[in-house]
Each structure stands twice: as structure tokens, then as C-alpha cells.
Design a protein around this nucleic acid. Structure first.
Lengths: 156, 156
DNA sequence: CTACATAGTGAAGTCACTTCACGATATGCC
DNA sequence: GGCATATCGTGAAGTGACTTCACTATGTAG
């Protein structure tokens, strides 16, 4: 008799892989949440800092676009980050409606720490691994990611 | 000159892999959220249904443990699911303090649909892929997951 | 039978998010 | 210049997922 709901062999294997993927996503998310919480941040706030860290000063509208959330939400996140002194809102040089948001010194220090933490995690996960296996993983992830994005574009 | 913050070659490769992993986790999460929303559910509520689907009727306390949330939270999720007729709370046969939660017919139909959707996604992501590549991916995921869990147990 | 642990829930609060309405400014057009 | 219209940020109000704390009802061990 067959296990896993009587599906053909390949389908069962695919299902298992997807399960691993979900599990991985969850554990990874939790881990990141904890790491970020240790520095007094939440995921959403850290995401905003990360965007500024990578792409530099930006308008709130641009941040909203980058993060895929409403401008109103960005306002709220910034209120908290600014109160913590991690971020500053300055007048936009040419558009008086807009605010230019940038990291403070303290915000830059924090995001630098985040980057170091992420790099350390990358090494723990992928370090000391045969190059061939790393390549296979990278290739596999790339393939799956491509298919995933294809689905998103079709019915997302 | 070196790219990616002057890190050694292996570290940079590891970093890229981790980035892919995060990206994959995010896209996968969003996709699942949408799929679940189409059936009138949220992620948390779907997670609860999924637990019941897999492990059968359970006490609220047990559900809280399974989901890794507080019992109070389960109460709230169940209030919503019960209002939607997807779940029933019955008196526990031997413990009069406890509630036995189980799927209704409608709840079972819904979770069945979720399972089919998941299986379909698994096929879209991993179907029509050379067996060797699938095996490599599975192996890679397993390895990374093991390392991730090791970290979780140490400093989580 | 008393002491203590456990199951569920009300009350209150936090955080991420949304929509809608509004004031302030920019911009295109005549 | 002047007016319509789009855009930038924010107040108000609401939802969903969480939490902690306090409390009632019940089980259980000594």
C-alpha cells in the first residue's frame, strides 16, 4: 500500500520537499525575529532600517513602495524608529510635501550589526560545506525561486 | 577589488544563498497567505485547522502547544473558526475543564482543499525536474534545516 | 479535605497592517 | 496667473494576531 495519500512517487517526493521548505521558512523567520528582538527591534521595523541601509535616504512614499506596504504604515513605523533615535525625517530639498528619511549614526551602527549577524548565520548554515553541495543548493533554490515567481506573476 | 563587503569568496557565496533563502521564504509566505485568503482564512486560522487536520481532535491547551502560542490566543482563533462553522468545541469526555476541538464537515472539506492546493504547488515547484536535482535540493534543504535547528537549540 | 496545578476566558494592551478623509504642496494646462 | 488634479504625509478608526494578568471551574495528590 502507498503512503502519503496514494499519490504517485514523484508527487510524494515533491510534497516532502515543499514541507521542508515551509519548515525552513518558519524556523528561519523565527530565528530572525529573535535576533532582531535582541536589538530592540521588530521585524517590520528592522525591514525598514534594512531598506534604508541598502538603498540610502528615501522618501516615505518610496519606502512604502520598497516594503510593499501602505504609506500610512510607514508613517507609524517611522514614528517608532525616530523615537528610538535610529532614523531622522528631514525636509526634502526640492519637494516640500515629502520627507527624506535617513539612518542616524546609531541607526547605521545597528544595521551594521544586523549585517554582521546575517553574515555569521550564512556561514553557520553554508560554511564548511563541499563546494559541489553548495552549488547544488544554490542552483536548486534559484530554480524553485524562478518557478515561484512565475506563479506569482500568473495568478498573484 | 572585492565586492560584497570584502569578505572571502566562500563567505560571499554563503551570503548569497542565505539571501535566496530569505527571498524564497518571503515569496512562499505571501503565496500561501493569498491561497488561504481566497478561502476566507488567515494564516493563523489556517494553521490551526491544519493542526486539527493532521493530528485530529484536540484540547485547546494541546493546540496552543502544537502551534507554539498562548492558550488565550487559541481561544480567539477558535471563536472565529467556530463562528464560521469550520470547527466545534465539545465537552471533553473525562475532563470537565477542557474542550475537545474538532473539524466540522465543512472544516474537513476546506482543509482537504488546502491539502490539494499544497500538493499542486509542490508539483509546480518540483515537478518535471530531473530526479538527481530533486534529490540534491532535498539533501541540501535537509542539511541546512539540521544546522538551523542546531542553532535554535543552542541559543534559541 | 485541603493545597495546588490545570483548562479556558474576560480585560487590557502592543504591533503590523488597512481604508478613508483631509490639508498641504506640486504640476500640467489654458 | 489661475485652476484642476495628482501626490505626500498623517489623523481617525478598525482588523487580526499576539501577549500578560487575573479569575472561575475543575482535577489531583497528600
Amino acid at each position: 500500500m502507498k503512503s502519503l495519500h496514494d499519490m504517485p512517487e514523484g508527487a510524494a517526493s515533491a510534497s516532502v520537499s515543499l514541507d521542508r521548505l515551509f519548515e525552513l521558512a518558519e524556523v528561519l523567520g523565527t530565528l530572525m525575529e529573535h535576533g532582531v528582538a535582541e536589538r530592540g527591534l521588530t521585524r517590520a521595523r528592522a525591514g525598514l532600517l534594512w531598506a534604508l541601509f541598502h538603498d540610502g535616504a528615501m522618501t516615505q512614499r518610496a519606502l512604502a513602495g520598497q516594503l510593499g506596504v501602505t504609506p500610512r504604515n510607514v508613517t507609524g513605523l517611522l514614528d517608532a524608529l525616530e523615537a528610538d533615535g535610529l532614523v531622522v525625517r528631514e525636509a526634502h530639498p526640492t519637494d516640500r510635501r515629502a520627507m527624506l528619511v535617513s539612518l542616524t549614526e546609531s541607526g547605521r551602527t545597528l544595521t551594521d550589526g544586523l549585517r554582521r549577524g546575517r553574515d555569521a548565520l550564512a556561514l553557520e548554515l553554508f560554511g564548511e560545506m563541499p563546494a559541489s553541495q553548495l552549488a547544488a543548493i544554490q542552483d536548486g533554490l534559484e530554480t524553485v525561486l524562478a518557478r515561484l515567481r512565475a506563479i506569482d506573476r500568473v495568478d498573484g
